[in-house]
Amino acid sequence: MNKLKVTSKVYFKQGRRSRKQMCLGEKPKAPPGRIPRVAKLMALAIRFDNYIASGVVEDYAELARLGHVTRARITQIMNLLNLAPDIQETILHLPRVESGRDTVTERDLRPIVLQEDWRQQRRMWNALAPKEGS
């Protein structure tokens, strides 16, 4: 009787409820660098807005209690939704930070979110935004 031997590469990843899950193939490589913090905050503001709109949470105060942060911090994060949609999209797609500090911070955006006119916001953003290749 012939013996058959099968060899395959596997890796483990975190599954549901912290269980390990075995996957076939090579472990995927994570892209270099990290996602800028302001991009994470923008995504968080969008998610929080959806929570409020769908009734999952009642208001900013409840978000603050659940997140163990101040209501003022929730307001700062939610103010990112006052940015022009194209600026929001640009923030969500900022390039990964490979070393050093983020090129744009939430604090840098505070004067921009106070502007109601999107054209003025765009002017301020263009003066602040990182240039290609830098």
Score class of each variant (00 low, 15 high):
V38E: 04
V69Y: 06
G25H: 07
N2L: 14
L81Y: 00
K40L: 15
H68D: 15
G25Y: 04
L66W: 02
T75V: 04
K131M: 08
R16D: 14
L63C: 00
T90V: 00
A127C: 06
L94R: 02
T105D: 01
R17W: 04
V57M: 04
D59Y: 06
L4P: 00
I46G: 00
L83F: 01
Q14C: 13
P95I: 09
G33I: 06
M1E: 10
N126R: 14
L4S: 14
K40T: 12
K27P: 09
P36W: 03
R16M: 10
R110E: 11
S134M: 11
R96Y: 11
V10S: 10
L128P: 12
H68N: 15
V57L: 05
M1Q: 10
E106M: 14
I35C: 07
L63N: 03
A72W: 03
Q76C: 10
S18W: 12
R101T: 09
R119D: 14
E116H: 09
S99H: 14
P95K: 08
P28W: 06
L83H: 01
R73A: 08
A43T: 05
K29V: 09
N79F: 06
A72Y: 11
P95H: 03
S134K: 13
D59C: 06
R73D: 14
R47G: 06
T103H: 11
K3A: 05
A64F: 05
G133P: 07
R37D: 12
N2V: 15
I91Q: 00
D108V: 01
R122Q: 15
V10H: 12
E89Y: 00
N82P: 03
R16V: 11
P95E: 05
L44P: 05
W118F: 05
L92E: 05
L81N: 00
P95C: 06
N50Y: 08
V57F: 06
R47C: 04
L94Y: 07
E132H: 03
A43G: 13
E26I: 12
S54T: 09
